[in-house]
């Protein structure tokens, strides 16, 4: 049931998009970080021993301006460039997340926003102090979330009382549950198994206990459960 944060991409489509992007950011951060830390450690190391160094700080004299040098501009440009690269990448990924479901599963963003689509399973999620209720289109109400593998799922998330945040961390689903408002979230679970559902917004004394289960089933098993109107299933844990 516990999956270490790295590479959750086999669990769901959103997790895949997340992981690609996280990997990109992490690579950029580590590369830039190595350069910056090397400078931060090496420069004091070298120049605390250097004997040729000049003392340019004189008591009572405002230090002069330095840095009309060209490399100042180079630094600025470098930072701007890496910023732009990150921005372009992340801009694309936001669009990717929104359009992925359309391209691969035929569910448009408009349908997603309206919370009704033919190809997708729509689950109404209600948070309350302290627990979750999941309601399916055929009227099943459950406190365990059963999901089909390989099919888009839309979550219509709301709350009865205070702010909660509905999340299935391993599937990279997180949507704020806000009283009086329905927020949409979606994913395509890929790997059957049992996943942790937890509240990610402090919601009172029972916040830590607001844990539930998401069970991703193979499609035929899910259909069986769905049509038998939510009888208890005994599923072997996996994934």
């Amino acid at each position: 049931m516990f999956h270490y944060p790295f590479d959750p991409s086999q669990f769901s489509e959103t997790a895949r998009v997340w992981w690609n992007l996280f990997g990109f950011y992490l690579t950029v951060a580590i590369l830039l970080g190595i350069a910056v830390y090397a400078a931060l450690v090496l420069i004091p190391f070298i120049y605390s021993r250097s004997r040729k160094a000049v003392d340019e700080i004189k008591p009572g004299v405002v230090p002069g301006e330095r840095g009309r040098n060209a490399y100042l501009a180079v630094i600025v440009v470098l930072i701007l460039a890496s910023f732009l690269a990150v921005f372009v990448e992340s801009y694309i990924s936001v669009n990717e997340l929104a359009s992925l479901i359309e391209e691969e599963y035929g569910v448009t963003i408009e349908q997603l926003q309206a919370g009704e689509a033919d190809g997708a399973l729509v689950v109404e999620v209600r948070g309350f102090q302290w627990g979750w209720t999941f309601k399916y289109p055929n009227g099943i109400e459950s406190d365990v979330l059963y999901l089909p593998a390989g099919r888009p799922v839309i979550f219509k998330v709301t709350s009865d009382d205070v702010f909660h945040a509905f999340s299935i961390p391993d599937l990279r689903v997180k949507v704020d549950a806000i009283p009086g408002q329905v927020n949409m979230g979606w994913t395509v679970p890929q790997t059957p198994g049992t996943y942790r559902i937890q509240c990610y917004e402090l919601c009172g004394v029972g916040h830590a206990e607001m844990i539930s289960k998401a069970v991703v089933l193979p499609p035929e098993l899910f259909d069986f459960w769905y049509e038998s109107l939510g009888e208890e299933l005994v599923v072997e844990e996996g994934g």
């Binding site: 992007l21 951060a29 992340s90």
Partner: peptide, 21 residues
């Protein structure tokens, strides 16, 4: 530096799915 780099991760709504809260 670490704080700043990790902050850039939070700027992205997709990455925020994991980071938030």
């Amino acid at each position: 530096i670490i704080g700043g780099f990790s902050g850039v991760f939070n700027s992205n709504p997709v990455l925020d799915i994991a980071n938030r809260g």
